[in-house]
């Protein structure tokens, strides 16, 4: 199971570099519901910021916006997961 998870993490890493963002985000959310404590969601948010992040608007430096969004998304989806019958 761990090897499966690592393989999927590697595929998503390559996907962040090559594929469209919406495809990769969909895959990340899918794996979030497939695996327990999928902290990789936060890591991939940080990866997007690292690879593509520049200053937005009036900010002088690049801020990790997608990292913060991924942290909030993790908290919200983790809460939502508790109410799903599949995990009860």
């Amino acid at each position: 199971m761990l090897w499966n998870r690592l393989c999927f993490d590697l595929i998503i890493f390559v996907g962040v570099v090559i594929f469209s963002w919406w495809l990769v985000v969909s895959a990340i959310i899918y794996f979030f519901f497939l695996y327990e404590s999928f902290y990789e969601l936060i890591f991939f948010g940080l990866l997007f910021d690292t690879l593509y992040g520049v200053q937005i608007g009036y900010t002088q430096v690049a801020r990790p916006v997608l990292f913060v969004i991924s942290v909030l998304l993790y908290i919200i989806l983790a809460r939502f997961k508790q109410y799903l019958r599949f995990y009860a």
């Binding site: 690292t50 990790p64 990292f67 942290v71 908290i75």
Partner: peptide, 20 residues
């Protein structure tokens, strides 16, 4: 998680640069 998010948001520039 929220604390890490807030701290990282304001002090992340060198980490992101080295990361890239």
């Amino acid at each position: 998680l929220i604390s890490i998010g807030v701290l990282f948001y304001f002090f992340s520039e060198p980490i992101l640069s080295v990361g890239f």
